[in-house]
Design a protein around this nucleic acid. Structure first.
Lengths: 313, 313
DNA sequence: TTGAAAGCGCTAACAC
DNA sequence: GTGTTAGCGCTTTCAA
């Protein structure tokens, strides 16, 4: 028992014994068994990370931020991919919970009723990342997608744009892209404007779809002076479509994406985008769970809104 | 015991009792405790996934493939990022091993001596992904980077290219990029050619670096007719550099990358690239561990070479 | 400040 | 085919 106490830094162990134990541990190459610890106190140093997709660099960067945020804490991340399927998400969270994790990092605020029930029973620290539009279960760390869409529209209007098109992919699943669109439209509406044209593609977002749909929408509406995209991946397709057709991007036609991927800054033409703090979000989510593990008070329903930055040509 | 046997499908339980147990489990909402199971038989359903970086879409896609490969098997992936640091890799693997994982998926064949020792003691199924140039510890699933570089050079020579430049990022860490370069040079050599110019950047690969270094190398060597890049991210920067300067890509100057990112197919110009089966690699690695869990014989030192595909303009 | 006892939920080994 | 026993390595609780 004294050894157990000494090794995990419990109070009330004599200096002398702490030294003895540490020396012995070093000499024998002792390493604790986290499985036994987790089993014994029904709380593991595992955390669950649930993302909708890994086909996009965005969630990889979030996970990279999480890894940084928990570095050195002894927490180990387990991950699962939902493919934007609420049923998969439920099953995933259920199986993650069976490991008695020290916390859960979920994407978005739109978990199903069933999932919310499961989590409220579990009494595990939960962080919902990326989004702050809606009711948070645990701590929410992210930003308002509605607001992001609105700000982009306002900025574009201020730059004199009037004839707006929208090109999106996978909106049925990607609810946050939907909210950006809502915000965008609300700002247009407030300015007495409306979308001139709008095209979706049911597939996952891709530059290929962006390129194709941009060609279509411009063919049908050659008088657009601005296109808003569901994200930068799709917007890059738009850029390539215009480059291939010799349409001057940024001048007669402004393109606007979302995320602020590094590539938007190295293109031969400039596009508008919203730079999102995705690495910071992951980092903050990781830190939150580290602090929760160390006994910090949890902040259910508390939203941390991190700033996004508009990048305009 | 009968319930325990019935629930995990052990043999020698009567049909009648299996039904009874399953019914009771359903009625009471029983879910097993994987922590107890793992603790009891010192073998968990966790697997460890170690990647060098998550700033690149490539490893995100690999992880996506892994998630698919283990789907439905009950295995749960834990992940860690090494930042190409062998010491971090060692520590990470050590801490992963303390969870008695059902297997480990590591990137590359270049683990340190210390790490190899650790793994040989552990008696855990190991899959090394992405690379097959070198000595495999466990099962290796990937392809030869040397060969990929060589084939690219051969194809480019066959297309009449003669004055080659090379632009790379982070070669000190990214040993696989280094081997592609070696393969590339070996083919040049065999054809009586050599690199005319070569520039590295110590940073991580990025389109920004690619753009900058391409401008530099072309300024110093305007007579190059082909540039080979350490990967597509860097090559895209090269494309943007050329587009910005009005240099016709694909004609007087051919650019060649590596990975076959989707974007290389939607650019307004065509570049050469090697399409790598990264999702399949992840999937196969996941499947291998599922099979190992189910008692399939392990294949230490066995290499599975998956085909890469040259994509040329 | 230290230690003894008991138990976390499961499974391997053995007896029936 | 089923049940009993013991133990995995740790921590909580309680007594000293």
């Amino acid at each position: 028992m004294t050894a157990s106490r000494a090794l995990r830094g419990a109070p009330d162990v004599s200096r002398e014994n702490i030294d003895k134990v540490e020396r012995a541990a070093r000499e024998t190459g002792y390493v604790g068994n986290p499985l036994a610890t987790a089993f014994s106190n029904s709380k593991s140093n595992l955390i669950g990370v649930v993302v909708p997709s890994l086909n996009n660099i965005v969630f990889a960067e979030v996970m990279s931020g999480i890894a940084q945020g928990i570095d050195g804490s002894g927490l180990k991340p387990m991950f699962g991919v939902t493919d934007y399927d609420p049923v998969k998400e439920f099953e995933l969270i259920k199986s993650l919970l069976s490991w008695n994790p020290a916390g859960l990092i979920l994407t978005g605020l739109d978990q199903s009723e069933e999932t919310r029930d499961l989590l409220s029973v579990a009494a595990v620290p939960v962080v919902q990342i990326m989004d702050t539009d809606g009711d948070a279960l645990g701590a929410a760390i992210g930003f308002s997608h509605f607001q992001a869409g609105r700000e982009m529209a306002q900025a574009l209007i201020a730059r004199g744009r009037r004839r707006f098109g929208y090109v999106g992919c996978g909106l049925a699943n990607d609810l946050r892209a939907g909210r950006r669109l809502e915000g965008f439209k609300s700002a247009l509406d407030a300015a007495g404007l409306a979308l001139v044209a709008m095209r979706h593609d049911p597939e996952h977002s891709s530059t290929e779809a962006g390129r194709r749909i941009t060609a279509e929408i411009l063919h049908a509406h050659p008088d657009l002076d601005c296109i808003y995209y569901s994200n930068d991946d799709v917007a890059l397709g738009g850029v390539f479509s215009c480059l291939a057709q010799g349409i001057a991007v940024g001048d007669a036609l402004l393109l606007a994406g979302f995320n602020g991927l590094e590539m938007t800054r190295t293109l031969p033409v400039r596009i508008a985008t919203t730079i999102t703090p995705r690495r910071q979000i992951g980092f903050a989510a990781g830190r939150y769970l580290v602090e929760a593990k160390q006994g910090a008070p949890m902040r259910p329903n508390h939203k941390t809104v991190l700033p996004t930055v508009l990048s305009l040509p």
